Simulated scan of single mutants.
Amino acid sequence: MPYNKDKQQAFQAAQQGFTDVQHTVNELVLDGGSYGSQLSHLRNEVNEAYQQIENALEVATDTQKAQLQKFKSDIETIVNEVNGQQ
């Protein structure tokens, strides 16, 4: 049972990391004076989310792996969109 709990905890951490990235993107103010610091915060959130996803992929079930790959793909899309706005 502890192994399954670890899988679930790893997945939930990755899911939370993805949610944090989405929230940070939604908070970006493109024409605000603090855009640079917001962008830096987003980069940190993205890096953390990627790490959490990679960690979770190591122990994930097949169903979780599919969702984790979707999180990863969605984050890549977010990063590309933000980079296009600069």
Rank of each mutant, 00 (worst) to 15 (best):
D6V: 08
K7T: 04
Q8I: 00
Q9C: 01
Q9A: 10
Q9M: 09
Q9Y: 04
A10S: 12
F11S: 03
Q12L: 12
A13R: 12
A13C: 06
A14F: 03
A14S: 09
Q15N: 11
Q15E: 13
Q15G: 01
Q16H: 09
Q16S: 13
G17H: 02
G17Q: 08
F18M: 08
T19I: 09
T19M: 12
D20C: 00
D20N: 10
D20P: 01
V21H: 03
V21W: 01
Q22V: 07
T24M: 15
N26K: 13
N26M: 03
N26Y: 01
N26A: 05
E27N: 14
L28M: 11
L28R: 11
L28A: 06
V29L: 01
L30K: 10
D31Q: 13
D31K: 13
D31F: 10
D31S: 14
G32P: 01
G32D: 08
G33D: 12
G33S: 14
S34T: 13
Y35Q: 11
G36I: 01
G36W: 03
Q38I: 07
Q38L: 07
Q38F: 06
Q38N: 06
Q38C: 06
S40A: 09
H41G: 12
L42Q: 06
L42V: 04
L42A: 08
R43T: 13
R43M: 09
N44Y: 13
N44T: 15
E45M: 03
E45R: 03
E45V: 00
V46L: 03
V46S: 03
N47K: 05
N47A: 08
E48L: 07
E48I: 05
E48W: 03
Y50I: 11
Q51C: 01
Q52D: 15
